[in-house]
């Protein structure tokens, strides 16, 4: 079991819902990014999705697009993020880290080299939104050939329907349930059939079910709380950080409050 699996299992044993945030790597700069990871860990975050900026983020809405663009313009690249992660791990950070990235970035870096580097620096999971199940073999073959390789997180959407069993079959870590159609960062109006969809997933999944897309406060998940093991906040968290000028106290308060309300 890796860090991420252990943490989610611990949540389950304590009867708690897990909370994951998404942040764009390299913002406000590499040093600030490292500090934000450490701040979140101290505030009790269960895992952090670290977005590797890409020039053409088709699964993302305006907030993450803008953040990615800004980060690229500041010179952020995969190599630099690996260095930062390596550093933060050396400084004792044990929070589960999940890379959220587009497939081209992995392909260009080299799949084999990418997986080895993830193991070396301590990346626990990978989410690749433009690599659907049918295209995953080229990547999972390499992941499966390495011990301690990061876990590939599977995504499900309200449109997945008959695809759910196939996608869940070998899924590990947790399953990422997208709350609505479309891209990240839309308002929290979940798909009209959200409960039926989550029920379907929950009944078939033997790993934690996390919901994401369009969530801002713990209240947003009230209507589906009984069907999920936790939730993920991305665009809203980035907005807050950008607006506060990456005020670490804002991040700390937000995470503490969210976790508390989520488990109230």
């Amino acid at each position: 079991m890796n860090r991420m699996e252990q943490r989610l299992q611990a949540c389950k044993q304590e009867g708690k819902k897990a909370f994951i945030t998404y942040m764009t790597a390299g913002l406000p700069d590499m040093e600030g990014c490292k500090k934000l990871i450490q701040t979140q860990e101290a505030a009790g975050i269960d895992a952090i999705e670290l977005g590797i900026p890409f020039s053409d983020p088709v699964a993302d809405g305006p907030v993450i697009q803008a953040a990615s663009y800004k980060s690229i313009c500041q010179g952020t690249n995969l190599k630099g993020v690996f260095e930062m992660v390596s550093q933060v791990r050396k400084e004792g950070c044990e929070v589960p880290l999940i890379f959220m990235m587009y497939f081209n970035t992995i392909l260009y870096y080299g799949i084999e080299k990418f997986v080895e580097k993830c193991i070396e620096v301590g990346v626990d999971g990978v989410i690749v939104p433009d690599l659907p199940f049918e295209e995953q073999k080229q990547f999972t073959d390499v992941l499966n050939a390495h011990e301690h390789a990061p876990i590939m997180i599977q995504l499900l959407t309200p449109m997945s329907k008959q695809r759910i069993p196939m996608i869940l079959e070998n899924a590990r870590g947790f399953v990422y349930c997208v709350s609505s159609m479309g891209v990240t960062g839309q308002a929290a109006d979940f798909h009209k059939d959200i409960r039926a969809y989550l029920k379907e997933v929950k009944s078939q999944s033997n790993i934690p079910v996390m919901i994401g897309f369009g969530i801002r406060t713990a209240k947003d998940v009230d209507g589906v709380r009984d069907l999920v093991d936790g939730c993920i906040v991305g665009s809203h968290f980035i907005n807050m950080m950008e607006e506060s000028g990456y005020d670490m106290n804002v991040a700390k308060t937000y995470i503490e409050t969210f976790k508390q309300e989520l488990n109230a």
């Binding site: 939104p129 659907p132 995504l155 695809r163």
Partner: peptide
């Protein structure tokens, strides 16, 4: 997988949301 490809090129690199649509 093979019928979506031309040799090693092509495929369906889209979000899960679009797979049933495709």
């Amino acid at each position: 997988m093979s019928n979506t490809y031309y040799g090693e090129f092509g495929g369906q690199y889209v979000a899960e949301t679009l797979m049933n649509t495709l």
